[in-house]
Amino acid sequence: MSDRHVPRKGRGATSNLQGRFERDERTRVDDGWQPLVGHLDPDEAPPRIETSVSIERARSILSHNQSPDIPFGVSLNPYRGCEHGCVYCFARPTHAYLELSPGLDFETKLFAKANAAEVLRETLAKPSYRCEAIALGVNTDAYQPIERELRITRDVLQVLHDCDHPVGLITKSSLIERDIDLLAPMAAKNLVVAAVTITTLDADLARKLEPRAATPSRRLRTIRTLADAGIPVGVSVAPMIPFVTDDHMEQILEAAREAGATYASYIVLRLPNELNAVFQDWLMAHFPDRAQRVMNRVRDLHGGQDYKADFATRMRGTGIWADLLRQRFYKAADRLGFSYHRYNERVLDTSQFKPPARAVKPRKPVDERQGSLF
């Protein structure tokens, strides 16, 4: 097994492959001083990689999206990179823009937008601002582990709560329960909707796929807690990975419905840019016996390619296998009484929005020694 295919405890990616924008190319060579990971003693674990967090000051905080297959137009991401380490995360390639690896760097070198709430408040106070539901934490999880201490998501929600601004959230973390005191009153005004992503009910598989996210059973409890608090909550069965998680669809829907979820959605695995190599390395590390079979089915779903970035098909796929997944989902959802809209497609009320007071910048003191021209 090569050093690119060695699992690391608590991490999703098995390698730190080079990002597409890096100028320097690196190749690992065994010079005899320190063995490569793949050449370590079988009983010796790969070296531990600690998580680092860099604080950055954002100049703008809202991102605007025009993709017709994405159910929101405006989003806010308090963090870049995600410690959950989900190996299938479509956001991994964004770390390449920082000249970092979409592999291990994505889940170990994180960036926190410390002034997110401040910039959001300034944005909402502008006379030109037009209220539209904001999707919070869709690129990387707004409730990833570092949020416990940094509380940036909490501060952002406080601003939205105070302004009666609608928001949609999606997460794999139970930490969202901390903010029920803000979310429940917003839900009573039809200002919030939430979704919890559940990829599998198998805890061992989840530990390999999404090592630092909440366990599947804990996520089901989170759905129940949110529902009991009167917060509309759904389940995102995503992604459907052929021969890995696709046989779990009906069980996830049943468990989520029992827990109180009222709407559901699903997405097939998509592998843009460097994510393709990250995922295939993971497959070779954990499922070498079926890696080729999985990728063949992925190609069946994307028109013979590893990934096809077509708005009409990238989320659900095409062909016979995509049709089977679609039929299974809708039959199960109909039987269980689910609605189908995704987490931010629910119509939230924008009419209650109250802009925050605009901060008045203090005027510079006048030097009384300076005479007037008039």
Rank of each mutant, 00 (worst) to 15 (best):
M1G: 14
S2L: 08
R4P: 05
H5R: 14
R8G: 07
G12L: 08
T14Q: 13
S15M: 11
L17F: 10
T27V: 11
D31L: 11
W33I: 08
V37I: 15
P42T: 14
D43H: 15
D43Q: 15
P46M: 11
P47I: 09
I49F: 13
E50D: 15
I55Q: 14
E56G: 10
R59W: 12
N65I: 10
P68T: 00
P68Y: 00
F72W: 09
S75W: 06
N77G: 06
C89M: 08
C89G: 09
F90C: 04
F90D: 00
A91P: 06
P93D: 07
A96T: 09
L98N: 11
L98A: 13
E107A: 04
A117P: 12
L120P: 13
L120F: 13
R121K: 14
L124T: 14
S128C: 09
R130W: 02
E132K: 08
V138F: 09
Q144A: 12
P145R: 11
T153A: 09
L157M: 14
D162M: 10
L169K: 13
D179G: 11
D181Q: 13
L183M: 12
T197K: 06
A206W: 10
E210F: 06
P211D: 08
A213P: 10
R218L: 09
I223Y: 03
T225L: 07
A229N: 08
P232H: 06
P232M: 04
G234V: 01
S236F: 02
A238Y: 03
A238V: 06
T245N: 07
D246T: 03
H248W: 00
I252V: 04
I252E: 04
L253N: 02
L253C: 01
E254W: 05
I267D: 00
L269A: 01
L275G: 02
V278M: 08
F279N: 04
W282V: 05
M284P: 06
M284R: 15
V294S: 05
N296T: 10
V298K: 02
V298E: 03
R299N: 00
H302M: 00
A309R: 00
A312C: 01
G319R: 05
W321D: 11
A322E: 06
D323W: 13
L325A: 02
R326W: 08
R328A: 05
F329G: 00
F329P: 01
K331I: 06
A333M: 01
R335Y: 12
G337Y: 03
R342T: 05
N344A: 04
N344G: 00
V347S: 09
T350P: 07
T350C: 11
T350I: 11
P356G: 13
V366Y: 04
V366M: 02
Q370E: 04
S372T: 02
